[in-house]
Amino acid sequence: MLYYSYTVIAAFDETDVRRVWIVSDKEYSGVYDQLAISDDGFWICKDEHSLSLIPADVSLPIQEVKCCDQDGRELSIQQVKLTRQVMLFMLYQIQGSIRGISEGGRQMNETSFWQLIDQAGNQEEPNEWLRDALLKKEINEIVDFEFMLQTFMHKSYLSSLWAAAYILMDGCSDDTFDYFRGWLIAQGKETFEKVLDDHEYLAAHITEETLDEEGYPQNEDLLSMAIEALTYIKTGDDEWDDEVHDELLDALEQKGLAESDGIELDWEEEDLPDRFPKLWERFGENPLGEF
């Protein structure tokens, strides 16, 4: 039984909640069909065209949203199949736009960022798990995640690390170096910091299990997790949205994320065997890729 202000919400059957009882002298008093339950709270039918979210956070009021299609036409409850996609779209209507999101709401700090990365790394499908985990977060937290990710991308934007990646894969383009650093961040804080301190640690760390399906140290998907989650929440689909992207950039700028300066490579290919002997011994003649 959950206590919600002067209202008591009683929901039964932990695995399949179908009804919600609200006992109160307020207008919401009554018995409602339970459409869905999530970390955010209970979704119930209020009338033919409205859904209400009863937040899990008992300090928040009941929130009401209208069921509409993408053109703003009202839909009846019978027309709405309440999938997670619909719930997220409606949650965006409740939570508001991304602008100004640095104020209030839950925050994600460096510790919680790395905890999330570590949790994902323990899953059978890390990227899918992380994507689902972000979709359950508040908008503030998703932007904080992207802020942390970009901070560590900037920190690892090093000429010497580019050289190490070049050895591993027998070449490394600009995009590939981005995907490599995404992979490095996905290895967790301990590995990330060890590799930045000593790039040759990669020779000991890399195994078949740490690489992608094609046998490369790359993780392109991690770099788009936040924008995909925000787009899904705001628009209800996965299609790229310029407005959401611009709002995210504005929010990151408000948080103080600086653009990364370009770097000049201070090495030539012929220098690499002497500069990174351990990496060259393992990967110089046997680069990664295509198991």
Rank of each mutant, 00 (worst) to 15 (best):
S5K: 14
T7S: 12
A11W: 05
W21G: 12
G30H: 04
Y32L: 03
Q34C: 15
D40S: 06
F42Q: 08
C45A: 13
K46T: 14
K46V: 11
E48S: 05
H49I: 15
H49P: 01
P55E: 12
V65L: 09
D69E: 03
Q70L: 08
Q70H: 15
D71P: 06
G72Q: 05
L75G: 06
K81G: 08
F89V: 03
F89Y: 05
Q95A: 11
E103H: 12
G104T: 11
G105C: 04
T111A: 07
L116S: 09
I117G: 00
I117H: 01
Q123V: 06
E125W: 10
R131M: 11
A133H: 03
L134W: 00
E138T: 13
M148E: 06
Q150Y: 04
M153Q: 09
M153S: 04
H154Y: 07
Y157T: 01
W162I: 01
A165T: 03
A165C: 07
I167T: 00
L168D: 02
L168N: 02
G171R: 04
C172K: 00
S173L: 15
D174I: 15
D175M: 10
Y179L: 02
F180E: 02
R181I: 05
W183I: 10
K189Y: 07
T191L: 09
E200W: 01
G215A: 09
P217F: 03
L230W: 00
Y232I: 14
Y232S: 14
I233Y: 08
D241Y: 09
V244M: 04
E247G: 01
E247Y: 02
L249Q: 12
Q254Y: 06
S260M: 13
E268T: 15
R282V: 12
G284Y: 05
P287T: 04
G289Q: 04
E290N: 15
